[in-house]
Amino acid sequence: MCLSAEQRLDNPTLLIIGYGNTLRRDDGVGVEAARWAGEHLARPGVRIFESHQLVPEMAEDIACADRVVFIDASVAGLGVGKGRAPGEVVHEVIKPADESDPSLGHHITPQVLLAMASAIFGGCPEAELFTVVGSDFDHGSGLSEPVARGLSRLQELLRAHTLTERSCP
């Protein structure tokens, strides 16, 4: 259900995807952020997904968007969370994965999704990834305190980032 090129230019679309497991506390921060975005950032041209994880079929929706914002959680000390404290919000502009991308699993990364979007569906959205560094990934719901603060910060960032309209290159 992609829009035509002309339709898109008139009405650039933004896709926000927040993902994570809300029953593993801080892991759910992406979903929480997406829910918040659904209440505060929804307007025509903005689509918001909340999901347990990234799945390949999102590639098609991504290909249809002009901009994509991914929101994820990361464990402090690992990956993006390395050398960072819980609650930090890391912002990255991301590009489709090249073939040397190491992260392969049921867990598809945003970069891989972008690569799929472009290789399979020919979409080339601008993309950015917000990662909130978390500390508590135990069973249960609700965010740890630093991550809750990180979420507030993230909301400001999201508001600022999504208000600026950008056109598809």
């Binding site: 390949p56 079929e57 994965a97 040397s100 991308d101 392969l104 598809i108 799929m116 290789a119 399979i120």
Partner: peptide, 22 residues
């Protein structure tokens, strides 16, 4: 190149099949 990115670049049709079936 032996990964899903390499796969979608080399065999986009198969990858698309996977997505459609899913």
């Amino acid at each position: 190149t032996r990964n899903v990115v390499g796969l979608v670049r080399k065999h986009p049709q198969r990858a698309a099949d996977g997505i459609k079936l899913r």
